[in-house]
């Protein structure tokens, strides 16, 4: 596992997002075991307490569950994974819309611009 960290942002949030990404893209599957604090800390070369905090937050968000004496696992609730996917999509959208508004686009224009771009992409794929 390698993550390009940005030292300007809390590291635990970056690891959380990375793990969520692995889950929604199916690289980590529901019920998969996740590495121990120690393993991940030496893998990523970061402080074990930071990894601990990442796992605590993921547990709080019920994305990861601890089975006593066995370690931590990705939630087996598919519904929960769909929610994460939607949350992550919302983040991407929010950022995009904010950017477009800053450029002076309004609601309808944004939708039109998106539709056009998506249309182009599909057409290009069709050509290949």
């Amino acid at each position: 596992m390698t993550i390009e960290f940005d030292n300007n942002l809390p590291i635990y949030i970056q690891i959380m997002n990375y793990i969520k990404g692995e889950i929604v893209t199916g690289k980590l599957k529901p019920g998969d075991k996740i590495p121990s604090v120690r393993e991940l800390a030496s893998d990523l070369q970061i402080n074990p307490n930071t990894v601990q905090r990442t796992f605590q937050e993921l547990e709080r968000e019920t994305i990861v569950e601890t089975r006593r004496g066995m370690g931590r696992y990705v939630t087996s609730e598919e519904g929960r994974i769909m929610t994460i996917k939607k949350e992550m999509a919302k983040d991407v959208l929010d950022r995009f819309i904010r950017g477009m508004r800053e450029l002076g686009f309004q609601g309808e224009d944004i939708v039109a611009a998106v539709a056009e771009s998506v249309g182009h992409e599909d057409a290009e794929k069709g050509d290949v």
């Binding site: 960290f5 030292n7 590291i11 800390a41 030496s42 070369q45 970061i46 402080n47 074990p48 307490n49 930071t50």
Partner: peptide, 28 residues
């Protein structure tokens, strides 16, 4: 790597340095 690998979790380590960027990820 050695610091992360061999650090005992019930102890604490105080590290003085003026080279911050390389090492800041292992600090609490």
């Amino acid at each position: 790597n050695a610091l992360v690998e061999f650090y005992e979790e019930d102890s604490s380590i105080l590290i003085s340095t003026h080279l911050v960027s390389d090492i800041e990820r292992i600090f609490d």
